[in-house]
Every structure is written in C-alpha cells, then in structure tokens.
Amino acid sequence: MSEAAGGNKLFVIILDHADLVDELMTGFLDLGVRGATVIESRGMGQIIRQDMPIFAGLASLFGEATGSRMIFSVMPVSLVEPVFALVEEVVGSLDQANTAMCFTIPVDQFRGIRH
C-alpha cells in the first residue's frame, strides 16, 4: 500500500555513543515517531584503527562495544524539528566532536506497513 509522500522525511542519526540508543528510542516514542531501524556501524577512523590493531586486537572484535549506531526513521515533516531537539537533549550539543551527526533526506515514495 503506497502512501502519499509529500510530508515525509528520512531522518538519519549517526550516534557515537551506543549507550544512548535506549534513551533516544524512548524519546522517539514520546514524540510519536512510529518506527526506527538501528544498525551497528563503524566510522572511517575506526576502520583504519582496527585495520592496524596493536594491543587491542581482541577487544576491537566486539563490534557492539566499539562501534557507533546508525538510526533511520521515516517520519512526517512536523516531527523533524522536535527530533533534532531530542537528539541534542540526549547527546549534548551537536557542535561538539564525537557526539552525533543528523541529517534528513526527502522521501519521494514510501510503501510498507506502518504499525
């Protein structure tokens, strides 16, 4: 079932602190965001470091402990600014390094079941 696309955005968050995912998800629900996908990811710096481990060859294999998280969520345009505010409230100022990066992409078409 296709959905009218005009008012939706794909909100993408690249979160350096994986332990903040729970807090973000709770905030999403409070704001009325109906779904999100979280995947483990690694930044370019991490890949270069893990490519040349010296002492931490074993610890760096535990991806969930050393990687970042990418969160994708398709949401109405009206929720975008509140979600930006939520992210800043949870991770701190986005102007600081090693916190999070967020951006939105317009969604032309959206098909799928929304819960």
Partner: peptide, 11 residues
C-alpha cells in the same frame, strides 16, 4: 562502551 571506545582510540 565509552571506556572501551576511549581505551581503543588511544591505542
């Protein structure tokens, strides 16, 4: 998580 990240980044 933060400890591991900091420790490994300073490797």
């Amino acid at each position: 998580n933060r400890l591991q990240q900091t420790i490994i980044e300073a490797e």
